[in-house]
Design a protein around this nucleic acid. Sequence first.
DNA 1: GTATTTGTTTTAAAATTTAAAATAAATACT
DNA 2: AGTATTTATTTTAAATTTTAAAACAAATAC
Lengths: 110, 110
Amino acid sequence: MEILSRIEELLLLTVWKLQDEAYGLTIRSHLSGLLEQDLSVGAVYVPLKRLKKRGYLSSTDSEPTDERGGRSKRFFRLTQKGVHALQQVRTVQESAWSNLPDLGLGWNPS
Amino acid sequence: MEILSRIEELLLLTVWKLQDEAYGLTIRSHLSGLLEQDLSVGAVYVPLKRLKKRGYLSSTDSEPTDERGGRSKRFFRLTQKGVHALQQVRTVQESAWSNLPDLGLGWNPS
DNA sequence: GTATTTGTTTTAAAATTTAAAATAAATACT
DNA sequence: AGTATTTATTTTAAATTTTAAAACAAATAC
């Protein structure tokens, strides 16, 4: 299985974290907070659709609500395959970050 | 500063890890081992050049050695800016991976 | 009806990734 | 000397991903 790109990993984790509130706009604002910079809507919706097509996410469309602008939302949730892909990327990351020699450049991971 | 892509992060970490032996081919084989899949040469050399252009890596070209095929190598090392970019990506990752609710899907990060 | 708000889709340009081929420079062999 | 082999970097072109902006859709508010 191909390793997840950075944005794919962060999107899957955000869906995980937001649980029952994971849809396009909440995902976008959560991730914007995490990265401390605004993301365009396309930067979220486009890869979300790809993650769904590849089976890392599933989705269900809600009924509209009676709030102002309360359109139907597309809620996402992690699939088993999505969990597995996160597991894999975490393993690679942990391996890459372990046993780094001291370079005397003033910082080593804790 | 833009967040590093996956391959950029892994390349910087590999240069860090390989210390005085960090050049194209050693970086490629170390990373292939980490990912458990072969990488094309372009998949390494192209982003290495970009990382240098952006100031995350510096390089020095060696003298040829007297081994068979022992051409001059381009050795890379992390710059202060490279260390800083790794620091930043690690902060984002740690934040993204923390406080994940239990989904009952059989796994949570340790 | 018209405006405003929330939300998703489309699109087109820019950038990155990937894989393959080309190039370069060294030693080995006959 | 000439040809083969090995190590190493560069180039290139296609595919894919990323980004930013505009378009579209559907709800309530005025």
